[in-house]
Write a protein that binds this DNA or RNA. Structure first.
Lengths: 172, 172
DNA sequence: GTCTATAGTGGGATAGAC
DNA sequence: GTCTATCCCACTATAGAC
């Protein structure tokens, strides 16, 4: 697993093959099947670790935050840019929910829902952050785009969304 | 190209191989290399077509729109859900900018920039829409999430962002 | 513009000995 | 828990005849 992760982060998903993992460990590929029944289960372990670690990074940014939304956004982007392949594996791919520790997803989401005030708003915030890093990682923005400024605009929009409640409640 | 697109949409990117394309056409794989120098150039043609078509779908939704942002959002989601593999190919993958018709990206973006008022805001809107469909297509939201409501919240946030200008200008 | 033949590379996985 | 040997699969791409 440690080897698989190292390979993934260093060379991308294409490098994570049973043969490469075994090579790096100095053993033969078939030996791996004594530890994992197949490749899918190995990838599932990788995704669970990535999810846990990503959640921890967000929570810890939240803990020392003056302005929570800005802090989460900053931590989200930093983590994704520092671990692009692991980020993609856990947030772009389908999750093997049958092989994941129960409750893991919910435990990652919970602290965020507390910040954004509702599940729906948390999903909007997640989608926005995910969209931004996704497009940045695939270099879909034009090369001259000032992404720091785009993130600032995004954070402002999310802050407006979360504070709007009072006015909306009064109107409703 | 038409065959490649049919394969992509029907069976996903894994089915788009030179062999499958040739099989579907009733010819042999090597014959394809008389029409495209390599696979990358064939994929580039596919991406250009997808980009053009997607842009056209958004523009046409805009043309008959009462509320432009809601209309664009609706068209964005519909297109992505109706052509998931083509959408991913053109919005998730890296673009082969060296093989794309010059000006194509800009011509897709231009009508949107007019709606959202600035490049930065357009990028926020794009990221939000892209994040939402991305997470929906990879089934990353919990199965019981009400995505129609999430999209409504997203559209409200974008509308707030685009109308805020006046107040912000007065303050600034 | 099509064909046959083939090179070269890589992948996941299993059987069975030690 | 490791090994060797192996199966079977798939892919991109080229050479050269027609």
């Amino acid at each position: 697993m440690a080897t698989a992760r190292r390979l993934l982060e260093a060379e991308g998903p294409g490098a994570v093959t049973m043969r490469r993992i075994a090579d790096e460990m100095g053993i033969r590929a078939p030996s791996l099947y004594k530890h994992y029944p197949d490749k899918r289960s190995l990838e599932a372990a990788l995704k669970a670790e990535g999810l846990r670690e990503f959640g921890a990074a967000l929570s810890s940014a939240l803990a020392k935050a003056g302005s929570p939304i800005g802090a989460i956004a900053g931590a989200y982007r930093s983590y994704a840019l520092e671990h692009p392949h692991l980020y993609r594996l856990t947030n772009d791919d389908e999750l093997p929910r049958d092989l994941l520790p129960p409750g893991l997803e919910e435990s990652v989401a919970a602290p965020l829902i507390a910040v954004f005030g509702s599940r729906d708003k948390t999903r909007v915030a997640w989608a926005l952050a995910h969209g931004l890093v996704s497009l940045e990682l695939s270099r879909r923005f034009p090369p001259d785009a000032d992404l720091a400024r785009v993130w600032q605009a995004a954070v402002r929009a999310l802050e407006a969304m979360t504070t709007k409640e009072l006015g909306a409640a009064r109107r409703g």
